[in-house]
Amino acid sequence: MQARCLGRLKKEAEDIRNNFDGVLELDIKDESQMCWHVRFRGAEGSVYNGEVFTLQFKFSEDYPIESPEVIFVGIPPEHEHVYSNGYICLSTLYSDWTPALKVSAVTMSILSMLSSAVVKQKPANDAQAVVWMKNKSPKKVNWMFEDDKC
């Protein structure tokens, strides 16, 4: 087990508890601390106002050099970049990941992605995509990042 990964996760947990109190709710699922659930509320004034969503973070030993696997669990938001299996099409999670990013920053950028949506809408190819994403980690999917707004 990489000391870096554990040390960082410990500090990140502190960071969320201290600096994001009332915004992000952290639930460390796995005892070895490699699986986290982060709950947050849809922003006021956005189409998701009041809805509660849960993101699941799975970390590998090489975190944060290697990106975490991030998906929505429970009921995912209806959003153009979120598939109904909870997979998220966001370049920051895959090709644009950098080790200087952290759980809170990722969650906040997903929250901001949701907040900028005008209508609730599923991705155009949702049903089809969910079928061929089956049993495939979101990190192994070839995402096409077409736009950064929606």
């Binding site: 870096r4 040390g7 960082r8 500090k11 990140e12 944060p64 050099i65 080790p99 200087a100 920053a105």
Partner: peptide, 19 residues
């Protein structure tokens, strides 16, 4: 936020391992 966090909040800390 991302760019200055280091200078302000994380001075003296590595942004990767937080050590």
């Amino acid at each position: 936020l991302t760019m200055q966090s280091l200078a302000h909040n994380n001075q003296g800390y590595c942004m990767i391992c937080y050590g």
